[in-house]
Amino acid sequence: MTLLQNKIPPATHRGIEEGVLERAAGKRNRRTYLALLIPGLLGLLVSFVFPLAYMIRMSFNKGAPDGVIIETFTLETYIQPLTDPYYWRVTLDTFQMGVTVGVLCVLVSYPVALFLARSTSKYRGLLIAVAIAPLLTSAVVRTYGWMVILGTNGLVNSSLEGMGLITEPLKLTNNMTGVTIGLVEIFMPYAILAMISGFGRLNRQLEEAAGSLGASKFKVFTRVTLPLSLPGLLTAFLLVFVLAISTFITPRLLGGGSVQVLATEIYDQTTGLLNWPFAAALSVILLVLFGVIIAVYQRLTKKIGG
């Protein structure tokens, strides 16, 4: 930069030479930027690109029983799930679970996020920390927590029975209900964070302005608060959706084997049946599903983000 300034030519021929110099400086800058990117790119290469490439390659191999991998190039691993209604159902269930968890999580997190985003309290920082504190414990621990709470003799069932509302315990674990409840709670901190960061355009003054123009509290919410928080809601939904359809711990632990989603299927195929090529193919299918969702998301944000 200093170099450039020293060389600024007299005003008479600025037009041409400045352009040349700027371009030269631009090139130099770009090279510096690229150099700075190298460590990160290398890290990404080792931790992401290689494994991904390995996984994709693996998906074209053939799996035989007992973990034998036949090196070849076949589409069988793809044709099998794509022509099998069972895997269509699993994929659909996965998608449905993602949407349900996403929607519920966004619904329950929205009031909290809205409160935190608008709070002017001096404890706001503390409150945000409290809201995301569950992230300090692992999802496994929290899932076990939910198993205890939702189990046949768990907190929920015993209090409902104690109040005489039910005679037989409700089945809240080992099925999709349990998985959904667990996932919604586990992803709430992510949803809250995503929303708070996505509420950029929302501010108190806009709501006050709407109020002063005659809008009732309800109208302020529907006409100003909600539309302005849509980008945040959408981001949170996408994040939770992606996390939900890729997580396997909670479906595994709270699903009791009855919840079959792509992630548990991949896990079973790798660790139970040792069929890595097939598991890899399912992973690629899951990736494609993400791709589709992200494409839709980008379309949507472009529309509502303005």
């Binding site: 992606v242 660790t271 993400f290 980008q298 944000t301």
Partner: peptide
């Protein structure tokens, strides 16, 4: 721009999970 970055994060998150399940090797 924001959307793209978020998209990328999501993609990374997604494939990380897929890979994790395979990384017991």
């Amino acid at each position: 721009m924001r959307a793209t970055i978020k998209g990328k994060i999501a993609a990374v998150a997604a494939s990380t999970v897929a890979i994790l399940t395979l990384s017991a090797c």
